[in-house]
Structure formats: C-alpha cells, structure tokens
Amino acid sequence: MTARGLVQLEKIVKKHGSFEALKGIDIEIRPGEFFALLGPSGSGKSTTLRILAGLDAPTSGRILLDGKDVTGADARARDIAMVFQSYALYPHMTVAENIAFPLEMAKTPKAEIAPAVREAAAKVKIDHLLDRKPGQLSGGQQQRCALARAIVRKARLFLLDEPLSNLDAMLRLATRVELKKLQRSLGVTAVYVTHDQEEAMTLADRMAVFREGEICQIGRPADVFAAPNCIEVAAFIGSPPMNLLTTRSTAGGVLIGGRHVPVAASLEAGRAVVVGVRPSAVRFDPAGIPVTVEVVENLGDAAILDLTLDGTPLRARYDRFPLPREGETMAVSFAPEDIHLFDPTTGRRI
C-alpha cells in the first residue's frame, strides 16, 4: 500500500493533426505526493491529465504507473479515480448509487458495498444525503459527492481536474483546506490540474508549470516562487504578478530609471536583460528612484500602487497608512537579493 501511486510520464507528445498540444512532457510523481499541473488554459495541463487517465492516448511517449507501462491501456484498466470539473455525476442515480458505481464495476461483493459507500460519504460529510439525486444537491454537495465516488474504491491514483472552479469563492477556500486534509489522511497520490496559481501554491507538494505544451518548471511551490526559471513562470506565479522591466546591465548591476542598481549575479556590462521584481519586494526609500503614483488599489490592510518609473509601469505592495494620494511622487529602491534577471531572447533565468 505504501509504495503505490508512482507516476512516470516519459517524453509524452500529443499531436492534433499538425498542432502539437504536448511537446514532450517528462514528469515523475512520487507515491503519496500532491502534485499540481498549473498553467493557463490551452497550455496542455488538461491534456496531460487526460492522457494519464487513459481518456486520450499520447502520440508518442510512455506512461508508467508503479513501474508498469500502461500507455496503451484503457482508463478502466489503470486503477485510478478522477474528479471532473463538471463533477460528471450520474443524474439518474442517487448519491449512494453514484458512489457505489465504481465498486459495482469492480465486482465488489454486495455486502461490502453499502458500508464502503457510507464510509466514503462520511469522509466528505454527505452521509445524510445518500438518498438524494444529484439534481437535488447544491454545487458544494455535488462536488463532495464526486469526491466520495473517487475515494470509495481506494484507487492508487487520484486525478482532479479543476475540481474547485465551479464553486463560489468562499466555498472554494474552505474546500481547498478539506481537500488537502483528505489527501493527507488517505495517503494517496493526487494529481491536480488548475489554472489558479494560488490553489497550486497552497495545495501542492510539488507542481509543474505548463506553457504552450511544455513544462517550464517543476518544483516545490516555494522554490518556484522564489526562483522562477523563466519569464513566463515569473509572470504567471504571484498575485499581483512580478514586475518585468526591460533594460541593460552595468558593471555589477543593472540600469533602472537611469540609475545603477547592484545585483547579486555577476553580469558582463552592456547586455540586454529583463529585470523582475515582485510587487512585495519594492521598497519605499526617500533616497531611491523617483516614481509617480498613478492609481491606488486599496485592499483594506494593504494597497497595490500602480506607479510609473521613468515612463514604465511598476506595481508595488504598500502597507503603511495613510496611503499616498494619486499623482503624488515617491521614491523606491531594490535590494540585490530581490532582483530576478532573465535573458530577453531565451527567456531563461540568468
């Protein structure tokens, strides 16, 4: 039971005609891990999940589950469970029948089905709704029913395709926490597809960031946040996203607003670079580079300031009150350790 749920995707390519939806994906997911596939829509994360589930076949490449090649196997031969974005509950069956369906298909003895259904329903707190039809449930209850149906069979792999995106904001936060607890208590490997970087950051042990059919970066969320390895990841992770300024390097630093700003990395002078600074890393310092406040977005406990620095926009997080007024002039500085540098031609981190 302990070592179940090792997933290896090797050089997965998926073509739709001449269009390459996936351009060679390599992922290894460890048993018991909560792994997120993160990326904007059309980036290939859902395609990857469908290939892993056996709903689509890759054009080339291999899929191994617990070391066994399942590339050509049907979904039902793979011993996996999945929660769909739309939940895909069977509308003509009661909640209990929905949850029992995977067990029935696995030819579980009748006597064992009812207790297993009740146990799974209790885990997601819908054991009082077993006789209802899906149409009589709220969105949150439907989502739980889909979860129960997925966990009842104790499959080795648990796939979740944007399972929270149809819930309203409050419920989404609460369910997120429960989902994490559930996965921990079951100890099952989970693969989670989302376009919401906050969900991936909070839920995942590790994540893969997708872009245009390729994986930009795989790593722990904190590591990806701290050191995005390309411009795309930098622009995608974090809210609000990282500021990216195109400029040139100087000896031991970069040019920002006409001033030399020292950086940690060693750079030859005079090359084009993209400088990334997180809004939370912008420091307000009267001795710094002058900026103009354009718009103030008050979040209550802090504010996002839309600034212009020498004509280029810059966003900063600001948590000192009173807040500055729009049109006011302030000054900012950057610490060398907060500056991310990228190559503008390759997009890679320097």
Binding site: A81, A88, F101, M105
Partner: peptide, 15 residues
C-alpha cells in the same frame, strides 16, 4: 449529453 459522463464511467471501471 456531456462527454464527461462517459469518461467518468470509464474511469470508474465500466466497459
């Protein structure tokens, strides 16, 4: 009918 309905059934182990 939504396609996901059948896909869910395949994953649940139905032929």
């Amino acid at each position: 009918l939504p396609f996901e309905m059948e896909e869910a059934a395949f994953i649940d182990g139905a032929s």
